[in-house]
Each structure stands twice: as structure tokens, then as C-alpha cells.
Amino acid sequence: MELPLTVEIILKAVVVLAAFLTLPLAIGQTEHKVMAHMQGRLGPMEAGPHGIAQLVADGIKFVQKEDVTPAAADRWVFRLAPAVALIPYLIALAAIPWSAAWVAADVPASLLFVLAVTSVGIFGTLMAGWGSGNKYSLVGGMRAGAQLVSYELPMVLAAASVAMAAGTLSLTGIAQAWSWWWLVWQLPGALVFLIAAVAELQRVPFDAPVADAEVVFGPYTEYSGLGFAFFLLAEYAGIVVMSLLFTVLFLGGWSGPWSDTLGPVWTLLKATMVAILILWLRIAWPRVREDQLQRLAWVVLVPVALVQLALTGVGVVVWG
């Protein structure tokens, strides 16, 4: 059945928005529970059976809280920052395919599109760091800026390797070109991409910009109520986007048994695994120091990504 174009666009937008609002909550709930059990606790248990509605309750709480803008804040910059942090991930989510047919916005160079759009999200952090008029926020914002610029390069290089191997910039095309031995062939690139993605998300072990013990949550110190909730949502939406992107690039997306019908399920399953891995790192590992963080990016990740690029080039020429 062919739908009129406008209806189709509106329908897709609604679906993407729904996914954008529910998937981060699911990740957040998973983090609550996985972290609790990994620490010998139970986690939230009261809101709904096994605390299933905990984040909904949190959301209601955030809405009720007073939205404070500090006197020293750069008013508009401070106010706009949460939206700037959140919206890029919403746009990126629309371009990531769940299966060959399940993609909201199938742009030709979707890989570049997703990377470019997510790189805009950093301005939310920078604006929050600057606009709060707070020295801890400023330090956190600077750490975030330095970290994101450093890790952008290995991330793009690792993604470029896959694009080269598939011979296309389209995420759908990359996932279709994928076959199981890429798991070995693209392994260094995959590791680099995963590490860089965790760093881009400012998650442990790369959470120096928001380190609570050092800069009291850095750029987000002054936020309360909905602004803070938006930043939290952006963090978890970031995990969703990065997990899906990693799945499509390095794990073959929807490929698996009966992928014609079960494609999106495979994507969801693989992305959930990646997301849980990202959560797991936060629970198991300590924070990396700022200089170690820069060193890792430039001394380890960039060279490894370049080697992977060369390896891919050789592979494409020899077998392609």
C-alpha cells in the first residue's frame, strides 16, 4: 500500500520521536538495574514491578522542579544548551537503518550524515560549560571540548575504514555489504570506534568532563529541572545512537537468520548488547586522567585507525 508522501513523512517522524523518547529510557532503566546487580544491590524496586517506572517517576519529578538560571549565567546560551545537546541525536536516529526497509530518512551519505550531526551535539556541552558562569562548568566544558576534538578523528577514521571496505557511504549499503569475516578484518577499527564512541559520550572511563569528584558534574552543575533532564536524556540518546551505529557498521546490522522478517529484531538485539557493554564499562572501570586520555587518543587510537585504514585498503585491492 502506497501512502501519500506527507502522511508517510509524518508517520515516520512520529515513530522516530517515539523511539527517541522510549529507547533512552530503556537504556537508563537497564543501567539502573545492571549497575545495581553488578554491585550486589537490587536497584529501583518501588515504582512499578521491579522499579520499571522509575525513570517515568524521575521525569515527573524533574518537571516539577524549579528551573533556575544563575545570576552569572549567559542567559540565552545557558537556556539553549540542553536543546542543542539533545536535538542532534534525534536527527541522527532518523538516519540510522534498522533493516534494509526500516529507515526513517534514507539519505545517500548517511554515515557521514550521522557523524556530522552528532558532532554538532558537543556545542550543547560547550555552551552549558560557558553559559553557566561557574568555574567548574568552564573547566568541564574545556575538558569536553578537548576530548571530543581528539576522539572525533579516530572515530571518523575507523568509520572511513568500513565505508572503504563496503565501497559506499550509505549505512544501508554498508550493512548489506557486511559479511561475517569483517569481524576479524575490521576488528582494530571496531575497537577504535567503540573506544572513541564511549569518549564522545563522555562515559566512564572517559568521563573527566563531568567527573563528579573533580568538577562536580562539570557543564551540568548549574542545571536543574527540565534542563538537567534534557542533558540526561541526551546522554542516553547518545548511547542509543552510538550502539546502533556500531551495530550497523561493525556487526552487520540486521544480518542474521531469517533477516528478511526478523531484521529489526537482530539490529535491536545487537545494539542492546553494545549498549550493555558501554554501561558495563562504567561499572567496572576507573576514570582516565586528562593527560592519559589525550595520550590514548593520539598515541594509540589514531595510529591503530590508520593501520586499519591501510589494512582495509590492501584488502579491498586484493579481494575487491
Partner: peptide, 12 residues
């Protein structure tokens, strides 16, 4: 994503 971020970083 990179150049202006660097500019803002320098300003901060």
C-alpha cells in the same frame, strides 16, 4: 564539529 569547537575551546 572541529574548527569552531577549537575556536570556542581557545576562547574558554
Amino acid at each position: 564539529g572541529a574548527v569552531v569547537v577549537l575556536v570556542l575551546f581557545a576562547l574558554m
